[in-house]
Design a binder for these strands. Sequence first.
DNA 1: GCCAACGTTGGC
DNA 2: GCCAACGTTGGC
Length: 153
Amino acid sequence: MPRYWLFKSEPGSYSIDDLERDGRTSWEGVRNFQARNLLRDEIAVGEQVLFYHSSTQPPAVVGPAEVVRAGYPDPTARDPSSRYHDPAATEEDPRWYMVDIAFRERFPNPVPLAVLKETPGLEKMVLTQRSRLSVQPVRPEEFEIVTRLGRGG
DNA sequence: GCCAACGTTGGC
DNA sequence: GCCAACGTTGGC
């Protein structure tokens, strides 16, 4: 049973435009243990991801993407020149993980956070309850509702 | 720019 | 192992 996820990114850092241009990308830089555990252990190839723009006006889900490579060590953790460098990461214990995702679609109608908050069926979304988690699970019915809104229906 | 929420760190 | 201090995220 495939599962669904939501990945947050500040568009100034990496946006849906960047993903569309690149085709695919590695989701580096996640430095939160709960999110790390999802990336390392749970998220599987073929699963769908809602791409969310945070810290922007308005914050919104901007389109779906797809997981094309499952969890593997995030090399930026061991790169001293990276802003994501973590001295605690070693080859034996990489500490931080990432997955690769591919562009699938850009919503004609990005779905703002305010709309998510007032849409029936989305009351329990992790996004509105534990908003700071940058990689989070999405229920199948939530994915369905959000993609319908994003496609304009 | 403010500030609430909350994850992480470190002293004890 | 607790918990206060601190830092970061992210909506507003």
